[in-house]
């Protein structure tokens, strides 16, 4: 893939992630979504760049704001949206919902309802891959809040000890639900915790698409070579509330303004134009095709069958 193709693909995936959220919020306001939704605006660069840096056989064990990664890794907008709406055509047959997206084909594993519980699962997938002797890498995401779980310590210790093929990605969006992170931890940089396990800890600016991509690429290829785990802290900012409907009384509006002005999706688009990688009409048609995909996904999900009560008695045991 040449640079133009790569960047256009990158932009398309960012744009899809952002607008998928818009569609979702509209559906949520319309009472068409079961459960909650946790917006990932501000997190798009992380998920998209991870997916671009991964191979299709690599695994992601995500946290609850990783829809951009699901979409960029190849889960269809139809399947994802239908799942969030509790429809049988969703990737888990409509029983999973927003917090429990799994998909064998695109290798998305592990429910995300209990924060930090995905780390041991990611460890196990990496362990199994090491045992099998293949070169598959596991990417495991969590928030700075989740990194306060005991599981974080147990898992980073073992992953380091056994030099497992895994990349830990802390998506630091500065908030833990309704509380600024400073009230939960003394350190500002979660990446510093890596030194406790004698592994590399790297900070990436998740409002800078190319920097974040390069960082993930480095960490993933290092894991693939057998050189062990890395903790990447992707610094971002949660542009929306904790979940849809959060009145955000705790938010500093100046701070939000600062981050909004640096919105990476707008910035990336501007750089594509400035660097003459694409012209306005190319980008417009790319954006139009994304909207078409989303329109079809919404129609598909709306007309799909909701999960039947009788289905909920299935699959308790394999």
């Amino acid at each position: 893939m040449d640079m133009k193709e790569f960047k256009l693909n990158y932009y398309e995936k960012l744009y899809l992630a952002r607008h998928f959220e818009d569609e979702l919020m509209k559906l949520f306001a319309d009472n068409k979504v079961v459960g909650w939704i946790h917006s990932n605006k501000g997190h798009e660069v992380i998920g998209v760049s991870l997916a671009l840096a991964m191979k299709s056989h690599d695994y992601i064990v995500p946290h609850h704001r990783d829809r951009p990664a699901y979409l960029a890794k190849g889960l269809s907008a139809k399947s994802l949206l239908a799942e969030i709406m509790g429809k049988t055509t969703g990737c888990c047959g409509g029983i999973g919902g927003e917090l429990h997206i799994m998909d064998v084909e695109t290798r998305i594993y592990g429910p995300t309802g209990v924060l930090g519980s995905n780390l041991p699962i990611a460890l196990g997938i990496a362990y199994a891959n090491k045992l099998a002797g293949n070169d598959h890498v596991v990417v495991c995401n969590f928030g700075e809040g989740g990194s306060n779980r005991g599981s974080f310590h147990e898992v980073l210790n073992m992953a380091a000890l056994w030099s497992l093929p895994i990349v830990f990605v802390c998506e630091n969006n500065k908030f833990v639900e309704f509380t600024p992170m400073q009230k939960h931890m003394n350190i500002e940089d979660v990446a510093r915790r890596a030194s406790g396990y004698d592994i590399e800890g790297i900070i990436a600016d998740a409002f800078n698409p190319m920097e974040t991509y390069e960082t993930f690429k480095y960490a993933i290829e290092k894991a693939r070579r057998g050189d062990g785990p890395t903790l990447v802290e992707a610094k971002t900012y949660r542009l929306d509330g904790h979940y849809e409907g959060d009145p955000m009384k705790y938010r500093d509006e100046e701070e939000k303004k600062y981050w909004l002005e640096r919105d990476p999706i707008i910035g990336f688009k501007a750089s594509l134009l400035n660097e003459s990688i694409a012209n306005e009409s190319e980008l417009e048609s790319l954006e139009a095709s994304v909207h078409q995909v989303l329109k079809e996904a919404v129609e598909f999900a709306l007309k799909s069958e909701p999960l039947k009560v009788s289905d909920t008695f299935k699959n308790v045991y394999a």
Partner: peptide, 16 residues
């Protein structure tokens, strides 16, 4: 690391 190793089994089990 009782939680860690039990989760390790969950993850490894998930992929066969």
């Amino acid at each position: 690391s009782e939680e860690g190793i039990t989760g390790l089994a969950v993850g490894a089990g998930m992929i066969g």
